[in-house]
Design a protein around this nucleic acid. Structure first.
Lengths: 211, 211
DNA sequence: GTCTATACGATGATAGAC
DNA sequence: GTCTATCATCGTATAGAC
């Protein structure tokens, strides 16, 4: 390998350009030019433009999902140990916190979240299928534990409420800095911890809503 | 005009193909072929592919926003007349109900919602800007009335909660039939009235969540 | 194995004849 | 208003240099 970091450079540049300019609007020529590699390098190393995006996602999603799964199981085991229902707030904290942590500039994944937000929205795309294959076990587990935590709410109802919660979260991920409407007297530039707590309060109240 | 309904046919076909196949994946050649018009007709009548989508959106969004704005003002005026705060449930019913009504096959706009969901997700796109310009007054008004209905919650907090609510709603719009994960014992094919009520319960609980 | 140069078909857009 | 012809650019594929 004369250029040992060609793949790495492609992943980094693609993540940034896809996130800032959009997947479809970003050409392979723009990526390979910015990464200072040949155009054909993408197809050689990854196979296609879609496969490149898939690799960009997998690189971050893999470790992230391990963390979320671990923290989810910790909450589940604590519930078993204490012989009680899983703690709802702990459950959703385990799911939300590691995700929003990526918004911190120090994480090195500042562009990743808005990228995921885009993919999550592309209902018809193949990318969605790829993403879901990675996420499906986590979603299933989160749903089951939420059902255990809220035995009073019908599964059917909880399914849709979890669906709504995912919607809020993905919408937040997508709105990196640009928030649709900024009314007077509102500062949209709040820190991550504050937003995380607001999302948690909102989501928990929704999940526990009276029937 | 030898073909007086060329524009109309283009709008109808484009709405259907954009919604089912995705905006980027649908070529102008596929649209003009299905509509049985010449390829250049799109650029003649609308100017560009993006402008065509904009026209498709505006055709439905205009009347819909008039309805939503009217119903919002009805709630506001009732509050003034009774000298009380606006009713929160009535407020969000006015916003959500006319929208989800479009999911009914009889509405003739069955493809529209998933199209809007796509646009709402394309954070970086020009389409988003177009959409927001149409929606911004409605969002502003909904936010202000929500603030009036919940004077105990800080504007800053309510801003984000409204943001989360919009996220749930757009996520629901996007998932026309295809829901990411279907756990056991859950029927995802519920009727619109039931889903509307579940979304309302969820959203209201979130907006009113304790601090 | 890795990179380069080059070519192919399809796309969105446009100019000009009718 | 409608059509044909043509353009630059896109994602992709491949042959050949190192």
């Amino acid at each position: 390998m004369s250029q040992p970091d060609t793949k790495q450079r492609l992943l980094d540049v693609a993540e940034r350009l896809f996130a800032t300019g959009g997947f479809h609007a970003t050409s392979l020529r723009a990526i390979t030019c910015a990464a200072e590699v040949n155009l054909a390098a993408v197809n050689y190393h990854f196979g296609s433009k879609e496969a490149l995006l898939e690799a960009v996602m997998a690189r971050r999603l893999g470790p992230l999902n391990v963390i979320r799964q671990d923290r989810l199981e910790q909450v589940a085991q604590r519930a078993v140990a204490e012989g009680e229902k899983p703690d709802l707030r702990a459950l959703w904290t385990a799911f939300i916190t590691p995700t929003l942590e990526l918004r911190r500039p120090e994480s090195g994944a500042e562009y990743f979240l808005s990228l995921i937000g885009q993919v999550l929205a592309d209902t018809n795309g193949v990318l969605m299928q790829v993403f879901l294959r990675q996420m499906s076990p986590l979603f299933q587990r989160l749903f089951e534990l939420t059902c255990q935590a809220l035995p009073g709410v019908p599964r059917q109802t909880l399914f849709w409420r979890v669906h709504f919660a995912i919607g809020s979260m993905s919408h937040l991920m997508r709105s990196n800095d640009r928030v649709p409407v900024k009314p007077e007297g509102v500062d949209t530039d709040v820190d991550i911890d504050a937003i995380t707590e607001m999302l948690l309060d909102y989501t928990l109240a929704g999940l526990e809503a009276p029937l």
